[in-house]
Nucleic acid binder design. Structure first.
Lengths: 249, 249
DNA sequence: CGTTATTTTGATTTCTTTCAATCGGTGTGG
DNA sequence: CCACACCGATTGAAAGAAATCAAAATAACG
């Protein structure tokens, strides 16, 4: 394996755990370590279960491309969508440190993934403090998103919930270069959004059409078009002061 | 400062970031480092704002004793309680890595806290991988709790929400030795619980009395008494397979 | 003991769900 | 090419859960 190949593995362009500056030299032991930690890359087809709730997992991932969904299934048969997986996200932190995931993760579209050995995660902390810190950053961002989602699901009305979720998704998508103009892909079903917001499918549908009639945003054929971003944010009670944490990518 | 004093600071009994084995020797540079990282300990009186949503923070904490509350205030004036702070919790991860907290933290009772320098957090990653890893573990547990809370707020009915929250609090309290028999302190207002679960105060009150009438649990005078833990869990749709992550304490 | 905060209760209104049914697109097999 | 089944989106009507409004009862406090 050539040095170039090593460098690719250690530092693949879109991995949130990559080395920040592409120009930093790699020490040879660092390359050796990362080659052991990073197993390789893989493609996941739509519908693939990356993690099953409650199951042990030996592999961790970072998403390089494609979209996925995190969710929990309850004993009453209902489903809570915890969030959407986007490029740059780390998947499997819970499995990494707690042994098993407390929610499932599924690929919605085809996804390109970086694969890591769970068993070597602690070694990362011993040998790669910069990457360990980056991982903690991702965890903190995730915590922030979850807090926002909780506040939305708990305290907002249906129209506000929908507006908030579309606004948030668009902002995130744009931040990682997924948007073209005022459009971005949104390859989920209305049922997924309903389950994310604690609304019924029917009410979600009706509320989406209100948003469309109001000229704020339309969502059809897996694409989201934002016609009035500012008003959409207002409707969704998005905190104006909110400095969206920049994705690590 | 004597060696004993140093040892106390590096390894105070209840801090989740303490060294696991009390018998491990400390290297002198480790003591030096921890003395710089850990500023000291402090008492917070009831009502003290430990963190303000959106504000920069120079200090991070671990809770040693007492109870607190995490919450977000929305633009529509409503409040979402994100969770309750219990001994062993780390407070301020977001401030540590993202610069500012996205929710507020307030002491409900008097709280004893370990105080750390935010500016030295990254040094912790470079010099104390064991503690850095412990911190990530705490973050993963927090993420797990938030996911559970989201699923509860999003997908359960009022009775289930209340039962779930009381069950969960009791289990956590018992795990850290806060319970005496089937009782534990619960020094919050009904309004706090309502804001945590996305219910109105009135409805929360009525639902609590249902739970009381059903003989599952009573909550009065700041104390929670669990009369039928198992049935309470069932009512709250608590996942039976759920291996509660052990607190680090 | 008066004042304030919290809990409790009842009546009414609003929002959301559930139920039921239609419509459009997609894929399959005859 | 068409009948058929299937899935997601859409719409209307009825039922239900929880919020809001209003007020009384308790408890906490200086």
């Amino acid at each position: 394996m050539t040095y170039q190949a090593n460098k690719m593995i250690v530092n693949c362009d879109q991995c949130p755990l990559r080395k920040k500056s592409a120009f930093l030299p790699f020490k040879s032991d660092e390359i050796t370590f990362m080659n052991r930690f990073k197993t390789g890359e893989m493609m996941a087809e739509p519908g693939t279960q990356l993690f099953m709730e409650g199951a042990k997992a030996a592999q961790l991932y970072t998403a390089l491309s494609g979209l996925g969904i995190r969710y929990k299934t309850l004993e009453n048969g209902r489903r809570q969508v915890i969030g959407f997986v986007m490029p740059g996200d780390f998947i499997g932190l819970q499995a990494g440190v707690m042994g098993e995931m407390r929610h499932s993760v599924e690929a919605t579209t085809q996804m390109q993934l970086c694969v890591f050995n769970r068993s070597r995660l602690y070694d990362l902390y011993k040998n790669q403090p910069e990457r360990a810190y980056a991982l903690t950053y991702l965890a903190a961002v995730e915590e922030h998103f979850l807090g926002d989602a909780l506040a939305t699901v708990g305290q907002k009305g249906a129209l506000e919930k929908i507006a908030w979720s579309l606004h948030r998704f668009f902002i995130r998508a744009r931040a990682i270069g997924l948007a073209e103009g005022n459009q971005c892909p949104l390859p989920f079903r209305q049922q997924d959004l309903a389950d994310a917001l604690g609304l019924s499918l029917v009410h979600t549908n009706k509320t989406l059409s209100k948003l469309r009639d109001a000229g704020l945003a339309t969502w059809a054929d897996g694409r989201l078009e934002v016609l009035d971003l500012e008003k959409l944010g207002e409707t969704g009670l998005v905190e104006t002061s909110e400095a969206e944490p920049r994705p690590l990518i």
